[in-house]
């Protein structure tokens, strides 16, 4: 299987005055094409820190991060932005659709940032919205959509630029059970021979959708389920 992303001995330490907090202890983990990986752990365990490092929005204190074979942790922010744009799609807990833009414009946004011609960007955005069955709401502003609908538009935005890595931060946390099934069905359908979907969650309902589960506990990344009450 093709390795899409890898973190190698990465750690993250936050310093506030004299206080040092180790959010992530030295950890290594790889993510491959064709799999949907759940990163599971309790609140404050370090799973979002791991996702931030993997998503190239946070620099690790130590260690290396590879995206499609390129070591990115030493790149400046200006180049990391381009790495994110071309390789990573994001789905956030709070949907994070741009409020003044309608669904179609939100989905077109990554393509606009990549300087794709407007006509081509519109066609691709409509295709992405069709994939999540949101094409009939493409003219609606985010505030006119339900939480589930907003998350489906966010998924369309994440996939429209055809990234190889899709990172989801608690994508179902704010959704009702029927929307959870729809959103997870769509995320599962994105997994392909050249795509990997990584989902950070503490929602145990998502386990059946996972091809692999990575556990994060107390800043440690584990491949085995820890013996804690939270794991169940």
């Amino acid at each position: 299987m093709k390795e899409i992303a890898k973190v190698s001995n990465v750690s993250k330490v936050y310093k506030t005055g004299d206080t040092t907090i180790s959010a992530l202890n030295p950890s290594s983990v790889s993510f491959y094409a064709g799999e949907l990986v759940l990163i599971i752990g309790p609140s404050g365990s370090g799973k979002t820190t791991l996702l931030s490092i993997l998503g190239c929005v946070t620099y690790p204190t130590a260690g290396e991060v590879y995206i499609n074979g390129t070591e990115v942790s030493s790149l400046p922010e200006s180049q990391l932005g381009k790495i994110r744009l071309e390789n990573i799609g994001f789905v956030f807990q709070g949907y994070n659709l741009i409020a003044p833009l309608n669904a179609l414009q939100n989905v077109m946004l990554p393509l606009e940032l990549m300087n794709v011609p407007a006509k081509e960007a519109k066609e691709k955005a409509i295709q992405a919205l069709k994939k999540v069955t949101m094409e009939d709401r493409m003219k609606n502003l985010p505030r006119a959509l339900s939480g589930g609908q907003q998350q489906r538009v966010a998924i369309a935005r994440a996939l429209v630029s055809n990234p190889s890595l899709i990172l989801c931060d608690e994508p179902t946390a704010a959704l009702d059970p029927s929307s959870v099934a729809i959103v997870m069905g769509e995320l599962k359908s994105l997994v392909s021979a050249d795509k990997c979907v990584v989902i950070v969650t503490h929602d145990m309902r998502l386990r059946p959708y996972a091809d692999r589960i990575v556990y994060v506990d107390n800043g440690n990344v584990l491949t085995e389920e820890p013996k804690s009450e939270y794991a169940h």
Binding site: G81, K82, R84, L85, F92, P100, L109, L113, R157
Partner: peptide, 18 residues
């Protein structure tokens, strides 16, 4: 008011110049 939107733009890859 729009700080979340600008943060999202940065996260998905918009440059500071944009």
């Amino acid at each position: 008011d729009r700080i979340k939107d600008y943060g999202t733009l940065k996260a998905i890859g918009a440059s500071n110049n944009y």
